[in-house]
Design a protein around this nucleic acid. Structure first.
Lengths: 134, 134, 134, 134
DNA sequence: GTGGTCTAGACCACT
DNA sequence: GTGGTCTAGACCACG
């Protein structure tokens, strides 16, 4: 369920953790009422400093997705699944905007940009999953 | 030809300058054999510190697009136009890939992602439809 | 391990710092997996501005010798020791070639040039025979 | 007699011109009583800005090698040949010193440095001139 | 005029 | 604590 953090990315580690948790909740991997892995456990799984996991959990708490339960860990709150589905769109939009602005600044038009993205999506899909049965 | 720098972005100013210069060269606004605007002139146009422009120019030099001519300025090198066209695609692809990987990891499919991007492109275009600064 | 910067030289300070770090790595004073002294610490040792050290570190990163670890410092990469050993020879050769070409163009022969260099090396060695700074 | 200036060198153009003139006089290509090519003529030969040639000539005058003759050009002074022979050693020494200091800073010892120089001299000699008859 | 280097001091995000 | 970025202002060599 949890994938180790790639040090190749420029995205801050704690944001990568947030994105992972949001993705897991949004896609039903964890449901309201479940518990998040403990900070230490998660840090071990992701090969990351526990402080960094703690920061990510803190932001998830501020976002209203989870709530600390004394002594037991982070409880995934009711309605966190729909909230997570919203958040992933917000996160993507905020990462998308500066990139698209730069793409336009590069002198590319919307059509060229979309073509580039489609091609990149294709290459990611074929590399990640087997081709669907026709 | 040159647009002012958006201070709202997390992208470093010097990278925004690089992107602009690459875009201008790739789209033929400046051609091999031309000179780049002087550091001080560009700094004035973009309302940034000359040191920041100098750093951008230094990176353009390392990228092989331009070459300093002692006492005269920055010369745009032969073949820099095709190199710039390559660069902007490469840069975008490398910024695109981790974001699209995360988007797919969020459980979104290609159609949803493209819709999101189209909407974001529209909002950027309508917001920047005012005439460009000199 | 680190020697103070000679302000008598026309060589930029940041290049002198690069040369020192390359020398230390090449000679095993620091090994892959170690951390470079922090920017502020190195700046204190060498009595230069932290920005100047940061610039040197940036170029060492581009050379593939080190990698910034967010929040922790500059990691010396695997194989950086052999790379550093190559680099110092390459750097010297490239600085040597135009000078030797000019020396031959002056009508001097190899023996005269080597005598000159030996004399210069002697004078440098006797002048720097004092114990190195910490 | 005069070779065009290589823009690949980091050595200032006016110093390259000085070195050429000194070399020509030291090796007898021009003798006391001869005239230096006019600024414009030399600038044409070397593909260089006349101002730069003028600066080089100015320094040669300050060094006491030549003297301006109104309306006719630069006269090569008596004893300039021996003076030029001294100068070329001085010029070489001053270019040699920072490089050797850096080489020592790299952790190389005098023997290794001399080996490197000998190898470089050999490669320059074999590339420049045909092998001597055995 | 040009670019290049350096200093001083500030602010920021990340761990 | 770490590195990264930016500003302001200075000085220099080169053409």
């Amino acid at each position: 369920m949890w994938t180790t953090i790639g040090s190749d990315s420029t995205v801050p580690i704690y944001e990568q953790i947030i994105a992972q948790v949001v993705g897991v909740i949004a896609s039903g991997g964890l449901k309201p009422g479940d518990m998040l892995p403990s900070v230490r456990e998660m840090a071990g799984k992701l090969l990351v400093n526990p402080n960094t996991v703690a920061r990510a959990y803190g932001e998830l708490e501020r976002a209203g997705l989870v709530e600390p339960r004394r002594g037991t860990g982070m409880l995934i709150l009711p309605a966190s699944d729909t909230k997570a589905a919203d958040m992933r769109l917000t996160i993507l939009r905020e990462r998308l905007r500066p990139m698209l602005r730069d793409a336009l600044g590069f002198g590319l038009d919307a059509g060229e940009i979309l073509d580039l993205i489609r091609a990149e999506l294709d290459s990611l899909n074929t590399r990640t999953s087997a081709p669907a049965a026709s």
